[in-house]
Computed example of a mutant assay.
Amino acid sequence: MLSFLPGLIRVPLVILLLVLNVLLHVLPLFALTLLKLLLPLAAWRRLCSRMLVAIAESWIGVNNALFELFTRIRWQVDGLDGLRRDANYLVLANHQSWVDIPVLQKILNRRVPFLRFFLKSQLIWVPLMGPAWWALDFPFMKRYSRETLAKHPELQGKDREVTRRACAKFSQLPVSVMNFVEGTRFTPAKHDAQGSSYRHLLRPRAGGVAFVLDAMGDGLQAILEVAIVYPGGPCSLSDLIAGRLREVRVSLRQRLIEPGLRGDYEGDEAFRQRFQAWINALWREQDARIGQLLE
């Protein structure tokens, strides 16, 4: 509606409104989190958790309204039918840009339980946002290199412990656990360096998906596969704010969780091979869907 405004006016105005929206929501979010910590009663904490999610969904809703108001993005989305707010989902998506997160939030906010991501531990220091993610029970994980694990074998399995603790918290309320299966953003350079056999994707990282499925157990009802495409090419958050992003295509597909997908990924070699074969097949289907969306 206001996308006609000159960029010199529109962009600072959008940034200002986004910052005000952060302040409008994080201040009550922090206050409620403090009350939640001060009164360690189970029923009170569950109520606070529901209220925190309501604040976060309102925050996302206002962001969505701002982008709708100030940009002219053409959306092509299929597969939204049958989504439920009272079901627990494992959401698996390809990853090309930080824009993927607002895209997922736009199409899934208030259609499925609140999305929670596994974040790098360094992100907790992001002003306002880091503490807000912590207050909303986003799990923070440390990534250890092979060299570090070789020198400090006691760190082996730490990520799995973090995953289990996070999933224990998730069991209190309906949740959508988000996982970017490639583990990093797609670029042609990374694709070539990996020698990826997929046309539009990097190789999938199976371990994180297997840990969540095992830790959540029967608490997860379905896997929600999301393919995201930007027909105009790679984009950034600055492209979104400046209105240079013109089209987004998204395809969603629900998949039932088979019992054989839960097991000891680290300790059971046979299970690990079966799971890797399964996720490679899923990723081939995802690659084909992205090709269709690009056509």
Rank of each mutant, 00 (worst) to 15 (best):
F180D: 04
K158E: 15
R45N: 11
R205G: 04
Q276P: 00
W278H: 13
L213Y: 01
G263Y: 03
L90P: 01
V229H: 05
T33M: 04
L24W: 15
L66N: 09
D239V: 05
A54H: 05
I101V: 15
K36S: 07
L18K: 08
S176W: 05
L27F: 14
G207R: 13
N88A: 13
G7V: 06
N280A: 14
E225F: 00
L35G: 15
G207Y: 05
H95L: 11
A87L: 13
P139H: 10
R160S: 04
L47K: 01
L149F: 09
L20M: 14
R74C: 11
E57D: 11
L128D: 06
R110C: 12
N63S: 13
L41K: 02
L213N: 03
Y198D: 01
I9Q: 04
H200T: 02
L252G: 00
G183Y: 05
V53T: 14
Q273T: 13
S176M: 06
D218C: 00
A227E: 05
V11T: 15
L37K: 11
L202Y: 02
L261K: 03
H152M: 07
N280F: 00
I257M: 03
F186V: 09
L115C: 08
K36Q: 10
L294R: 15
A43L: 11
R203F: 04
P127W: 09
G243P: 08
D159V: 12
R143M: 13
L39C: 13
L155N: 09
L282A: 14
A150W: 03
S58K: 07
G183W: 03
Q276W: 00
A210G: 07
N94W: 01
L115W: 00
V250Y: 01
D287W: 04
